[in-house]
Write a protein that binds this DNA or RNA. Structure first.
Lengths: 169, 169
DNA sequence: ACAGATAGTTAGCGGCACAAACTATTTCAC
DNA sequence: GTGAAATAGTTTGTGCCGCTAACTATCTGT
């Protein structure tokens, strides 16, 4: 650091070589930045994900919601607790299943979501600043494929585990 | 869930739209998988990063190493502790600065690193399976640009903070 | 020689993902 | 129908990780 030119940059070439490292690192930065911005709305990442899916899917249960956002059931409890305390979501009675809740987005929830979307757009523009429009599209498409494949593998792994467990019984 | 076809996939469209969400999600999956595999070598992610940079940069101090890998000084202590306990790294005397350690990679460290590289290659191939060679190259190049920009912003932010602090004094 | 910066260490906090155990309810097999 | 197993939600606890603050030892600049 005392040398004139920095002998070692913040990101070392030996690590930049690995695509996995880059994704991991960028993901961490993106998460951190976006989390900071969401705080201005009283939201965290999980709450933001919940609002999005809830808006798209109408009233659903915590279980299904958790699957869609990638939150396990126990973490879902506190997430919904907070959202409900802030008046963004309501736990209503499920029409047919008395074990389950039907989660409803409130009007305020919808408003907060739309503010969140603006913040998300800003954060994304900032993150993808080095890319032009067509590159962003390419990147997005490739990431979609990777995410799908990774999720398929996860689901397949789950089913395999279940099958194995069943076989063991 | 009781419907025949799954009404909601593991990754919901409302979230897949956001590139930031995808990067974040994929980063988490990649991290998790790679971490599991590294366990077979008795390594975690931070230790793996340290070995890589140490191999590339020869003996350096913990401070400089931390900057390169993205580990803060306090976390670096336990990381090096573990590596030293496993005989992969040695804390030797720094030739000119008695406060600092000169970190050396041992022969065993080099061997473990090369096993780690094989594991990293496998994990990367698995993650990027949906992409062909030219797409992987494109993706990598774009991610490099994003990571550089993000890191530059971070450094600039640090310097701004320092300047502001200095001005305040 | 003294003030301030720097390298390393220790301790502790807060957030998060995950697992285990529990209650209430539903579903399925018989 | 009735009992067994599965499911929705909740509570509690555990371990990891990144971060901060405080401390000692040493270096640097004037």
């Amino acid at each position: 650091m005392s040398d004139g030119a920095p002998p070692i940059p913040g990101l070392h070439a030996a690590l930049m070589r690995h695509t996995g490292f880059l994704i991991n690192r960028i993901g961490a930065v993106a998460r951190k930045r976006f989390t900071e911005r969401l705080e201005t709305l009283g939201l965290n990442l999980r709450m933001w994900g919940v609002l999005n899916v809830l808006d798209a899917e109408g009233p659903i249960t915590q279980h299904v919601l958790g699957k869609s956002v990638g939150i396990d059931p126990s973490s879902m409890v506190s997430t919904i607790d907070e959202l409900e305390a802030n008046g963004l979501v309501e736990r209503r009675r499920h029409p047919t299943d008395r074990r389950a809740h039907a989660l409803h987005l409130t009007e305020q929830g919808r408003e907060t979501l739309s503010s969140g979307r603006r913040i998300a757009r800003e954060a994304q523009d900032e993150l993808l600043a080095p890319l032009d429009a067509s590159e962003r599209k390419q990147l997005h498409e490739m990431l979609c494929r990777i995410a799908r494949a990774a999720d398929d593998a996860r689901v397949a792994g789950d089913e395999l585990a279940e099958t194995t467990a069943a076989r063991a019984v």
